[in-house]
Design a protein around this nucleic acid. Structure first.
Lengths: 292, 292
DNA sequence: AGTAGCTCATAATTTTTCCCTATGACTGCG
DNA sequence: CGCAGTCATAGGGAAAAATTATGAGCTACT
């Protein structure tokens, strides 16, 4: 026979009110029920908690001391539970999110602003990483959600399409290519190209597209950062191939961009989550904002 | 529908073992029972605690976090309850005791030693005070037990006789009174007396006894401390009237004591406690040692 | 002094809760 | 493909706890 929360609440309330009857009323039970709860607790602990007399009850020293300790514990419990409920209602919570740097710089700020508007209590811990690492972080559970590239069917990951990021040709001011509405791969292959460094996933995508068309890539320049590539284009040194969503393009007013005639130069940006793992309410809210 | 300790234990155990079945076994319930406990808790909190799949369960982030908090709270609860049970078994606890100085110096040390032998975990907070204050401390609940004089029927206090402390005549070495087995009040009244100071309850008792016999008291010396009185007697300056139990007499080897022929020169030393208030287990143990 | 009103305790009954056994569904492995 | 392991579901039954009704002891008021 062990003690229960009900008995503990009965004790604290009885000590607080100094009366079994009042305590029972406050706890919405009948007085005999509370009397029995107290008595059962006493038997369970082997401690006399109240001195009974015909004109009421009076807590013993042990009763007072226990009520104090129990009250503190009940308060802690209440706090913990309230916190959990608050998170369930999306009124608070933390999401760890792994994001591609390009998305972090472009799509993400607006999404986070919308999330904040809808759920001000939710905090998002953003970690930017390259595509492979985004997937690894989500797999390891270090990030509850990830924004990365579609990488085909992985058993441990579930992908939700977010949007497609096409690569575009970035032309220097007044370039003759600007006359066309779109460019072909062979035309691009013949032009001096500004590409990202050979290790990047962006570069790999470009290489694949050209190879599929039977072309080889001979970059005129390689830049690690997109802003460098943009600067090179602006200086008229070549044509860059960059994601359409890159913020660097939007802040470079004189440059023109043109789509490229191939379905291969596209990246499907997806939301990643562990398969079979339910999302926290906070993550759920973030996912909704990202997808919606 | 609210949460219970049982459900909380189910959660912590399920997170700990990573399996509903193992958790159920450890908690000595069937697996369906545990499944239901978890589910009820989830509904009560509005939180998904586990991701279920056919090959087992896996706690969600919320489940892990809650299990951690709940475990801490359960530990605290366990500690508090264990402490209470320990006190109930007299393996620990504190008693506040108010004592007459004379008893504190004489009877008490032995009693405390016996208490320590029987119940090493019990601590006694001793406060020495004059008879009136001993009663007041017990009435106010500041001392759970008191050792004082029998003061007649008080509505708030309950008295248990401990022993009787007779006043005896303390004679200088070789005094002629030593020839008699006992002394009479008139004989004493005629001798030079060493008494305690007029404010003490001891002195009041002596005055009353002499007055009842139609005699008046003319002390040759008044001493505040018994050790002073003893020194005066040893110097042959008079005969003292002191409690037989006074430790000062035992450490004064050359002095003789004789009883006095009157029932009035006796103090009934009693154990005092609040009427209707049960004793803590520790106080119970102390009371047993004192009375036994 | 008698009585009304307050307190808590007790008793018997009913309601609710909870648990257990048996079984099913699903997955992963040999 | 079947076997072993996991959790979910369903139905019957036992245990726990609540309620109502009542009793008993004290206080205070008239």
């Amino acid at each position: 026979m062990s003690y229960s929360l009900r008995q503990i609440r009965a004790l604290t309330m009885a000590v607080e009110t100094g009366s079994f009857g009042r305590a029972a009323a406050r706890l919405h039970v009948s007085q005999p029920a509370l009397t029995l709860q107290i008595r059962t607790l006493e038997e369970s602990l082997g401690v006399t908690l109240f001195d009974r007399s015909a004109r009421g009850v009076r807590p013993t020293l042990a009763g007072q001391a226990l009520a104090l300790s129990f009250q503190r514990i009940l308060d802690e419990l209440e706090t913990v539970v309230a916190g959990a409920r608050e998170q369930a209602q999306r009124r608070s919570g933390v999401v760890h999110l792994a994001v591609l740097p390009s998305v972090a710089a472009n799509l993400l700020p607006g999404a986070l602003a919308r999330l904040r508007a809808a759920h001000p209590g939710i905090r998002v811990m953003v970690r930017d990483a390259v595509a492979r690492r985004v997937a690894a972080l989500v797999k390891a559970g270090e990030a509850e959600l990830g924004i990365g590239h579609a990488a085909g069917p992985e058993p441990e990951l579930e992908e939700t399409p977010l949007f497609e990021d096409s690569l575009v040709a970035v032309l220097p001011p007044g370039h003759t290519f600007a006359a066309a509405a779109s460019l072909t791969l062979p035309a691009l292959a013949a032009a001096p190209l500004v590409l990202t460094d050979p290790e990047s996933s962006l570069r790999a995508l470009v290489e694949q597209a050209f190879a599929a068309a039977g072309l080889s890539v001979r970059p005129a320049y390689e830049a690690t950062y997109m802003s460098t590539a943009v600067a090179l284009v602006r200086a008229g040194l070549g044509i860059a191939v960059l994601p359409a969503t890159a913020v660097e393009l939007r802040v470079a007013p004189l440059l023109e961009t043109r789509p490229i005639d191939t379905p291969l130069l596209r990246r499907r940006i997806v939301l990643l989550r562990r398969r079979g793992a339910s999302l926290s309410p906070a993550a759920e809210a973030l996912a909704e904002v990202l997808a919606g």
